[in-house]
Structures are given as C-alpha cells and as structure tokens.
Design a protein around this nucleic acid. Structure first.
Lengths: 206, 206
DNA sequence: AGGAAAATGTTAATTATTTCACAATGTTAA
DNA sequence: TTAACATTGTGAAATAATTAACATTTTCCT
C-alpha cells in the first residue's frame, strides 16, 4: 500500500480539500461520481484511488465523508507534522505564505528567508523573515525539512545547494531554472511559463 | 506529428529555455546528454522528444542550438501570437505578470483584472488593470484567448463561467478550486497545496 | 416478494510514457 | 588504415496510468 501512484497522491490531496468543504456543509455521505464531478475526472478513477488506500464505501450510500477525510490524512500526512520554509519572499513567496498560513496543521511554514535586509526581521502573514545568510542555522534550529524556492532563477542553483547541505529532504522549486539535488532529496519542480506555453499549444491544436 | 504527447510539449518548452541560455553563451552545438543534465532527465528521452518533432542532429556533434530553438518555436508557438490576461492581481497575479512581462514575444499579457477599484486604472509591470466587471468587453476588444485565474478560490467558478462566455479558449487555473469548462476550452489547473502535500508524502516514504 | 435501478469494487484491456538495447555512423588516435 | 569510441535514431520492451466491463449488493418501487 506504500506504492501509491504519484497521480493518486495528488488526487487524494484534492479529494480531501473537496471533502472538507462538503463536511463543513454538513454532508455525511458522498458518491464517487459526486467527487468526480467536483474534480472533473471520472467516477471510476475516484473509486480506484479510494480502493488503493484500502477504504470501502457503503453500497448505494457512497463514502462516509468524515472517515474518508481522516483516512486520507493518515495516508498523506506525517504524524508528527513537517516544518516548511519559503526562500525568497517576493510576490510569489508571499502568495504561497498567505495561501498556507493557518491552513494545514501537519504542514507549517515556520520561516521565510530573503536577501533584502529591509525584509529581514519583518513578519509576513505571521511568519518571521530571516536573512538568507542564516539559512543553514535557522533550518537546523527550527528542524525544517521542506523548502519552497521562490527566488530569482539565477540564484536557484546556489540556494538549492545550500538547502541540501543544510539537511533539507524535500524541495519545491518554483523558479524557472531546474536544479540538481542528490537522489535522497525529493524534488518537485513547477514552472509557470511551461504551463502557459502548454495551454497555448493545445489551444492552437484544438 | 500533431499528436505530440503532453509531456513532450512540456519538455520542449523547457528545452527551449535552456537552449536560449546556451545560445546566449555562444554555444552552437549541444549533445542530448547535456540537455538531459540541465533538465535532470535521461538523454534517451531528450533524443526521443527531438525525434518526435522531426529534427535530426549531427552524429558525434549533437544538435545545432539555433536550429533546434527555431524548430521548437515553430511547433509550440502560434504564428500570429496569443493574447493573455491575468484575472486577479494579488500577490500571485503580480508574480506571474512580472515573470512574463517582456519575455515571450508570441504570448503577451495584454490586460490584468481585479475587483478592487483601487487597483483599476493602475499599471502593473506595464500592463493596465481593468475592472473585473468589464471582463467580457475587454476580452473581446483586445482579442484575448487565454486567461490565467489568480482570484480567491471561492470566486473561481463564477469568474470561470464569465471567461468562457466571453470567448476564452484556454484557461490556467491557479486557484485551489477546480472549475468546470466546456470541452472546447483547454483547461490546465495547478494547485500549490497539492504539490506541497505530495512532496511531504514522498519525503516521508523516502 | 420480486424486479429494476443505482452504487461499489475489481479484473482486464487499453493507452500513455519511459527505458532498454542496439544498429548505424562519424571521429579520433595509434 | 584500422580499431576504439562516442553519439544519434529508433524498434521493442517495460512501466505507469486510465478506462472499460461487469459481478455484486443494496435500495426502492410496485
């Protein structure tokens, strides 16, 4: 059961978010096709994902919303919680910080970093900004395991190396510059230009 | 040749970006394994992607950087160029606008929108901000074909509907809320929370 | 009570993507 | 001149992800 497909993990995260909204609205049961509709995927895919995590719904009634939320939590959250930092508190860094602040209890942003001395010491959405020169020290002190890079592309490789040396084990790179990390570090990269170019391409070809 | 895999399109966009940097540095030829190194993928994958677009390198010399850049452009750019708008000029909207401003000649951000009257009329990175109430009018006037949504999640479905009615044919949804569009509209969704949860999961399971 | 309808759970088939393996061939060095 | 090497191009195999098909079961209706 540890070998869940990457795509399934992504969808579970999304299901949970949708389910939390349903739960807040007072729904106790939900059908696979209702989840599917929200995520605009097929009901079979929803059922398969749920099958993979070993949950069983009730025939003709669907899935218990609360139970499913909790089970997804058991699968994708880590029990103790994980500390995260944002490196580079420009527009994108602030967007993400704001986005997360006070959302997930198991994933907490505990520090943001920037080179700009004018930003150091200030708080962003309740999170203190540290000098990027103190990356290593703060990461160790605060037991930060995941870093989100939102620095300018040209700084990404250098910052990435520092983060790896400081003991980061997961990294989310939002700069347009791919970085190299040792295989023990889990790296996810996302680049907005690529996404837009992709949309433009598929728009063109119907 | 029109049936290029989605993943190949994404990589071609990335190759081009890397190649442009190489070209700027004066490189005239590049090997598949060099491109692979930059993107941290395998050389075979690079060669296959290049094969799929019908380009042929020179044995033992590699690929001509300039030729490859141009060919990728022919494949993924649309000849006439495409106009894009950003809906919601908060932190994320500004990050993207800044990111793109003056980069791709074939993809231009020609308008940004916001509900906040204090923002309307101002310029963001050189792009004028319009009232979101004028979405339909401005989209038609400026012949905008792609919209990037960076509004709060709760507004996403409603804005999405307006965009579709206004004639948008491609949409990039950066809100955490999935939206439904008719099948003629190409939709790409990306959600940062999901990405972070995914990293957290795979970090946990080595 | 019995039949129709609506769900889930799952095997099998299909499709998409990546990787392997290797032929072909130009380049370099002895 | 020839052997060793490095590189591209690609068919075939392997892996990953999605979709189809359908058995099963519960509920509802008559």
């Amino acid at each position: 059961m540890k070998n869940l497909p990457h795509k399934t993990i992504e969808r579970l995260s999304q299901y949970r978010r949708a389910l939390l909204l349903c739960h807040a609205k007072g729904m106790t049961y939900i059908y696979s096709h209702e989840i599917a509709k929200i995520q605009h995927i097929t009901a079979v895919q929803v059922r398969r994902d749920i099958m993979l995590i070993g949950y069983t719904g009730t025939l003709r009634k669907g899935y218990n919303v609360k139970e499913l939320i909790d089970l997804i939590g058991q699968i994708i959250d880590s029990k103790e919680g994980i500390n995260v930092c944002i490196v580079g508190i420009g527009n994108l860094g602030r967007a993400i910080t704001n986005y997360f602040s006070g959302k997930r209890t198991k994933l907490s942003i505990v520090a943001v970093f920037d080179v700009d001395k004018g930003k150091v010491g200030k708080k962003y959405y309740g999170i203190e900004c540290f000098d990027i020169a103190d990356l290593t020290k703060v990461i160790k002190e605060k037991k930060i395991e995941i870093a989100i890079m939102t620095v300018p592309g040209e700084d990404a490789p250098m910052i990435s190396d520092i983060l790896v040396k400081a003991g980061i084990i997961g990294m989310l790179n939002y700069t347009p510059k791919p970085v190299n990390v040792p295989k023990e570090v889990y790296l996810e990269e996302y680049d907005m230009i690529t996404s837009l170019e992709k949309v433009a391409f598929f728009v063109k070809t119907h």
